[in-house]
Design a protein around this nucleic acid. Structure first.
Length: 256
DNA sequence: ATGCCCTATGATATAGGA
Protein backbone atom coordinates (compact mmCIF):
# COMPACT_ATOMS: atom_id res chain seq x y z
CA UNK A 1 0.00 0.00 0.00
CA UNK A 2 1.48 3.31 -1.12
CA UNK A 3 0.46 6.46 0.79
CA UNK A 4 1.57 9.98 -0.11
CA UNK A 5 1.40 13.49 1.30
CA UNK A 6 1.85 16.53 -0.93
CA UNK A 7 1.31 20.23 -0.42
CA UNK A 8 0.30 21.16 -3.97
CA UNK A 9 0.08 24.95 -3.52
CA UNK A 10 -3.25 25.27 -5.38
CA UNK A 11 -4.90 22.18 -6.85
CA UNK A 12 -6.37 24.37 -9.59
CA UNK A 13 -2.94 25.47 -10.79
CA UNK A 14 -1.45 22.01 -10.22
CA UNK A 15 -4.09 19.56 -11.41
CA UNK A 16 -2.32 18.59 -14.65
CA UNK A 17 0.95 17.87 -12.83
CA UNK A 18 -0.84 16.08 -10.01
CA UNK A 19 -2.77 13.87 -12.44
CA UNK A 20 0.41 13.12 -14.41
CA UNK A 21 2.25 12.21 -11.19
CA UNK A 22 -0.61 9.98 -10.01
CA UNK A 23 -0.59 8.18 -13.34
CA UNK A 24 3.09 7.31 -12.89
CA UNK A 25 3.33 6.67 -9.13
CA UNK A 26 -0.15 5.18 -8.66
CA UNK A 27 -0.42 5.66 -4.89
CA UNK A 28 -3.35 4.01 -3.15
CA UNK A 29 -3.94 7.11 -1.00
CA UNK A 30 -2.75 10.68 -1.37
CA UNK A 31 -3.23 13.47 1.14
CA UNK A 32 -3.20 16.95 -0.36
CA UNK A 33 -2.77 20.34 1.30
CA UNK A 34 -3.14 23.97 0.25
CA UNK A 35 -5.93 23.32 -2.25
CA UNK A 36 -6.71 27.05 -2.45
CA UNK A 37 -10.21 26.30 -3.72
CA UNK A 38 -13.67 25.59 -2.37
CA UNK A 39 -14.81 22.03 -1.76
CA UNK A 40 -17.10 22.31 -4.81
CA UNK A 41 -14.34 23.71 -7.04
CA UNK A 42 -11.98 20.75 -6.55
CA UNK A 43 -11.14 19.49 -10.08
CA UNK A 44 -12.23 15.90 -9.47
CA UNK A 45 -12.73 14.69 -13.04
CA UNK A 46 -9.05 14.20 -13.97
CA UNK A 47 -8.29 12.17 -10.85
CA UNK A 48 -11.58 10.24 -10.94
CA UNK A 49 -10.61 9.23 -14.47
CA UNK A 50 -7.52 7.62 -12.91
CA UNK A 51 -9.68 5.67 -10.48
CA UNK A 52 -9.49 7.92 -7.41
CA UNK A 53 -12.32 8.87 -5.09
CA UNK A 54 -12.13 12.39 -3.68
CA UNK A 55 -12.93 13.77 -0.23
CA UNK A 56 -12.06 17.45 -0.18
CA UNK A 57 -12.47 20.33 2.25
CA UNK A 58 -11.85 23.89 1.15
CA UNK A 59 -13.33 27.35 1.51
CA UNK A 60 -11.64 29.36 -1.20
CA UNK A 61 -8.48 31.35 -1.41
CA UNK A 62 -6.38 29.83 1.39
CA UNK A 63 -5.73 26.46 3.00
CA UNK A 64 -7.80 23.44 1.95
CA UNK A 65 -7.08 19.71 2.34
CA UNK A 66 -8.15 16.51 0.62
CA UNK A 67 -7.80 12.75 0.60
CA UNK A 68 -7.80 10.81 -2.68
CA UNK A 69 -8.11 7.05 -2.56
CA UNK A 70 -8.59 4.14 -4.90
CA UNK A 71 -10.53 2.22 -2.23
CA UNK A 72 -13.65 3.53 -0.46
CA UNK A 73 -13.14 6.00 2.37
CA UNK A 74 -15.20 5.51 5.51
CA UNK A 75 -15.58 7.44 8.78
CA UNK A 76 -14.69 10.65 6.98
CA UNK A 77 -14.22 13.54 9.43
CA UNK A 78 -13.89 17.14 8.28
CA UNK A 79 -11.92 19.43 10.61
CA UNK A 80 -10.40 18.29 13.89
CA UNK A 81 -13.14 17.85 16.48
CA UNK A 82 -13.05 21.06 18.59
CA UNK A 83 -10.58 22.63 16.18
CA UNK A 84 -9.78 26.19 17.31
CA UNK A 85 -10.94 29.01 15.00
CA UNK A 86 -8.75 31.79 13.68
CA UNK A 87 -10.37 35.21 13.58
CA UNK A 88 -13.73 33.51 14.01
CA UNK A 89 -13.30 30.91 11.26
CA UNK A 90 -12.64 27.20 11.59
CA UNK A 91 -10.24 26.86 8.69
CA UNK A 92 -10.09 23.86 6.32
CA UNK A 93 -6.90 22.28 7.62
CA UNK A 94 -7.76 18.66 8.44
CA UNK A 95 -9.66 15.76 6.94
CA UNK A 96 -9.53 12.15 8.12
CA UNK A 97 -10.73 8.86 6.69
CA UNK A 98 -10.28 5.12 7.04
CA UNK A 99 -9.13 3.24 3.93
CA UNK A 100 -8.56 -0.53 3.75
CA UNK A 101 -8.10 -0.70 7.50
CA UNK A 102 -5.68 2.24 7.73
CA UNK A 103 -6.76 5.57 9.24
CA UNK A 104 -5.19 8.66 7.69
CA UNK A 105 -5.46 12.36 8.47
CA UNK A 106 -4.37 14.98 5.91
CA UNK A 107 -3.35 18.11 7.83
CA UNK A 108 -2.17 21.60 6.97
CA UNK A 109 -0.80 23.02 10.21
CA UNK A 110 -0.98 26.83 10.56
CA UNK A 111 2.22 28.63 9.52
CA UNK A 112 2.60 30.83 12.59
CA UNK A 113 4.03 33.78 10.62
CA UNK A 114 6.17 35.43 13.35
CA UNK A 115 6.84 34.43 16.94
CA UNK A 116 4.98 37.46 18.33
CA UNK A 117 2.06 37.07 15.92
CA UNK A 118 -1.36 35.85 17.05
CA UNK A 119 -0.98 33.20 14.34
CA UNK A 120 1.90 31.58 16.26
CA UNK A 121 -0.24 31.08 19.38
CA UNK A 122 -2.93 29.71 17.07
CA UNK A 123 -0.40 27.26 15.58
CA UNK A 124 0.51 25.86 19.01
CA UNK A 125 -3.15 25.69 20.03
CA UNK A 126 -3.99 23.90 16.78
CA UNK A 127 -1.23 21.33 17.39
CA UNK A 128 -2.58 20.78 20.91
CA UNK A 129 -5.98 20.06 19.41
CA UNK A 130 -4.36 17.61 16.99
CA UNK A 131 -2.88 15.71 19.91
CA UNK A 132 -6.29 15.61 21.61
CA UNK A 133 -7.85 14.29 18.39
CA UNK A 134 -5.30 11.47 18.20
CA UNK A 135 -5.86 10.65 21.87
CA UNK A 136 -9.63 10.59 21.45
CA UNK A 137 -9.50 8.31 18.42
CA UNK A 138 -7.15 5.95 20.30
CA UNK A 139 -6.63 3.86 17.18
CA UNK A 140 -5.33 0.32 17.35
CA UNK A 141 -5.39 -0.06 13.57
CA UNK A 142 -2.54 1.47 11.50
CA UNK A 143 -2.94 5.21 11.93
CA UNK A 144 -1.04 8.20 10.57
CA UNK A 145 -1.30 11.97 10.55
CA UNK A 146 0.42 13.17 7.38
CA UNK A 147 0.81 16.58 5.83
CA UNK A 148 2.47 19.95 6.00
CA UNK A 149 3.33 20.44 9.69
CA UNK A 150 5.20 23.71 9.10
CA UNK A 151 7.80 22.45 11.60
CA UNK A 152 11.34 21.26 10.84
CA UNK A 153 11.89 18.47 13.42
CA UNK A 154 15.64 19.13 13.88
CA UNK A 155 18.31 21.59 12.80
CA UNK A 156 19.38 19.04 10.19
CA UNK A 157 16.02 19.62 8.53
CA UNK A 158 16.79 23.19 7.45
CA UNK A 159 19.54 24.22 5.04
CA UNK A 160 21.05 26.77 7.45
CA UNK A 161 19.85 26.87 11.07
CA UNK A 162 21.48 30.28 11.55
CA UNK A 163 19.13 31.79 8.99
CA UNK A 164 16.13 30.64 11.02
CA UNK A 165 17.20 32.09 14.37
CA UNK A 166 14.19 33.87 15.80
CA UNK A 167 11.84 32.43 13.19
CA UNK A 168 8.92 30.07 13.29
CA UNK A 169 9.21 26.41 12.17
CA UNK A 170 12.31 25.66 14.28
CA UNK A 171 11.49 26.76 17.83
CA UNK A 172 11.66 24.39 20.82
CA UNK A 173 7.95 25.06 21.44
CA UNK A 174 6.99 23.90 17.96
CA UNK A 175 9.32 20.89 18.05
CA UNK A 176 7.94 19.94 21.45
CA UNK A 177 4.47 19.56 19.92
CA UNK A 178 5.89 16.91 17.59
CA UNK A 179 7.62 14.94 20.35
CA UNK A 180 4.47 15.29 22.48
CA UNK A 181 2.61 13.26 19.86
CA UNK A 182 4.60 10.28 21.18
CA UNK A 183 2.44 10.55 24.32
CA UNK A 184 -0.53 9.61 22.19
CA UNK A 185 1.38 6.93 20.28
CA UNK A 186 2.69 8.75 17.20
CA UNK A 187 6.30 8.97 16.13
CA UNK A 188 7.81 10.01 12.86
CA UNK A 189 8.41 7.81 9.83
CA UNK A 190 11.62 9.40 8.56
CA UNK A 191 12.13 9.14 4.78
CA UNK A 192 15.35 7.61 3.56
CA UNK A 193 18.13 10.16 3.13
CA UNK A 194 18.80 11.99 -0.10
CA UNK A 195 22.55 12.61 -0.05
CA UNK A 196 22.35 14.92 2.94
CA UNK A 197 19.42 16.91 1.53
CA UNK A 198 16.31 15.59 3.23
CA UNK A 199 14.11 18.53 2.31
CA UNK A 200 10.49 18.57 1.19
CA UNK A 201 10.08 22.32 0.63
CA UNK A 202 12.10 24.95 -1.20
CA UNK A 203 11.09 28.59 -1.59
CA UNK A 204 10.34 29.70 -5.15
CA UNK A 205 12.67 32.67 -4.69
CA UNK A 206 16.44 33.05 -4.99
CA UNK A 207 17.03 29.74 -6.77
CA UNK A 208 16.41 28.06 -3.42
CA UNK A 209 15.85 24.62 -4.95
CA UNK A 210 18.89 24.77 -7.18
CA UNK A 211 21.05 25.93 -4.26
CA UNK A 212 19.74 23.31 -1.84
CA UNK A 213 18.11 25.91 0.42
CA UNK A 214 15.29 23.71 1.66
CA UNK A 215 13.34 22.58 4.71
CA UNK A 216 11.83 19.26 5.75
CA UNK A 217 8.40 20.17 7.03
CA UNK A 218 6.09 17.62 5.36
CA UNK A 219 5.91 14.75 7.82
CA UNK A 220 4.46 11.31 8.50
CA UNK A 221 3.49 10.84 12.16
CA UNK A 222 2.35 7.26 12.72
CA UNK A 223 1.39 4.79 15.42
CA UNK A 224 3.09 1.49 16.15
CA UNK A 225 0.75 -0.59 13.99
CA UNK A 226 1.53 1.68 11.03
CA UNK A 227 5.30 1.60 11.69
CA UNK A 228 5.24 -2.19 11.76
CA UNK A 229 4.05 -2.20 8.15
CA UNK A 230 6.45 0.41 6.76
CA UNK A 231 8.84 -1.01 4.16
CA UNK A 232 10.13 2.28 2.71
CA UNK A 233 9.65 6.05 2.80
CA UNK A 234 11.09 8.57 0.36
CA UNK A 235 10.83 12.09 -1.00
CA UNK A 236 10.22 12.63 -4.71
CA UNK A 237 12.38 15.71 -5.18
CA UNK A 238 12.22 15.20 -8.96
CA UNK A 239 8.69 16.59 -8.76
CA UNK A 240 10.04 19.93 -7.49
CA UNK A 241 11.84 20.43 -10.81
CA UNK A 242 10.67 22.30 -13.86
CA UNK A 243 8.08 24.90 -14.68
CA UNK A 244 4.78 24.69 -12.85
CA UNK A 245 6.05 22.72 -9.85
CA UNK A 246 4.64 23.11 -6.37
CA UNK A 247 7.14 24.49 -3.87
CA UNK A 248 6.73 21.21 -1.94
CA UNK A 249 7.73 17.71 -3.07
CA UNK A 250 5.57 14.61 -2.49
CA UNK A 251 6.54 12.36 0.44
CA UNK A 252 5.82 8.67 -0.13
CA UNK A 253 5.50 5.84 2.39
CA UNK A 254 5.16 2.17 1.44
CA UNK A 255 3.31 -0.33 3.63
CA UNK A 256 3.41 -4.10 3.38
C1' DA B 1 21.19 19.62 -14.63
C1' DT B 2 17.81 22.24 -11.16
C1' DG B 3 17.50 27.99 -13.63
C1' DC B 4 16.59 33.53 -11.35
C1' DC B 5 8.53 33.79 -6.84
C1' DC B 6 3.84 31.93 -7.08
C1' DT B 7 -1.33 31.95 -6.30
C1' DA B 8 -6.19 33.74 -6.05
C1' DT B 9 -8.83 37.71 -5.63
C1' DG B 10 -14.98 42.80 -6.16
C1' DA B 11 -7.37 42.16 -9.19
C1' DT B 12 -4.03 46.93 -12.51
C1' DA B 13 -2.36 45.90 -5.80
C1' DT B 14 -2.42 42.77 -1.90
C1' DA B 15 -2.01 39.03 1.43
C1' DG B 16 -0.04 34.80 2.47
C1' DG B 17 3.38 31.56 2.00
C1' DA B 18 7.79 29.69 5.59
Amino acid sequence: MRIVTWNVNSIGARIDRVAAWLEVQRPDVIALQELKCTTQAFPSAPVEALGYRVEALGDGRWNGVALLSKSPMTEVVRHLPQQPPYEGNVEPRAIGATIDGVRVWSVYVPNGRELEHEHFAYKLQWLGCLKQTVAAEAATIPYAVIGDFNIAPTDDDVWDPAVFAGSTHVTPEERATLTALAEVGLREVVPRSLKGQPYTYWDYRQLAFQKGMGMRIDLIMANRAFHERVTDAWIDREERKGKGASDHAPVVVELS
